[in-house]
Amino acid sequence: MSALETEAEPTATSSGFMRSATATLQHARYTFAENPVSGIAFALFVVLLICAVIGPAIVPYSPLASDTAAALKPPSLQHWFGTDQLGRDMFSRVVVATRLDMAIAVFSVALVFAMGGVAGIAAGFFGGWIDQVVGRTADTIMAFPLFVLAMGIVAALGNTVTNIVIATAIINFPLYARIARAEANIRRDSGFVQAARLTGNSEMRIVLTQILPNIMPIMVVQMSLTMGYAILNAAGLSFIGLGVKPPTPEWGIMVAEGAGFIVSGDWWIAFFPGAALMLAVFCFNLLGDGLRDIVDPQRRT
């Protein structure tokens, strides 16, 4: 039987896969053409990616090198984004910070994707006590204003970057678990799942071959949408002094450092990291919307 399987599956699915891939690609091209904003978001995403990967190698100054002679200089040709109170080059600091901010967001979203996805699918598909436990856990987390809970978690677990990642993952857990639960639940007794039962698939196999592939696109869209929120959340925590410690370049803490200078008119110290943060979040939100249009045109809002 296994021999048969290997023989038949490629013929049955590979051409089909190619076809679906090209169809998706066409649809993606159509979506981007119709909605140029998504195209801009994608370009922004590429810029962010470049900054995150090779940022430290391309910046003109060391992000930590202070030069008191050049302190508090407004943007100029030498210092595109100006300098802070210690004379550090803001442009270099903003670019270098990309990696840390993105890393926090990516790791926390990956973590919650795994936790929430597994828990939600199990709850939605198997129901019973698993559903009760997952539901109760999600409810309890949801009973807190999420940012406040994140503050409490970081305060309790200790003031480190890792704990910011964990806290961000935890507060997003209910969202992922609920979406995965709902999607698994509506498919649990759908015709094609029942049909799969009739063709002798075990429940576990049904989850892997019938439920998971159909839920995946929705979850991926969710990932893209929560990336922005994760970045905001992490930056907010470091803005109030949690997690990242100075002088590490990170957008939230840089805005906090520049906040005191706003009232005296030195706007650039807070402005550029804040603007970078905003653009990054904006980019992920737009990408998420664009992805949703591609994956599920009916849910356009």
Partner: peptide, 20 residues
């Protein structure tokens, strides 16, 4: 509703043969 949107017609028909 009774066909997995991610399976081709051939894959759907083959499912019982592959499984049982």
């Amino acid at each position: 509703d009774s066909l997995n949107p991610r399976y081709t017609a051939a894959r759907a028909i083959a499912d019982p043969i592959l499984r049982m």
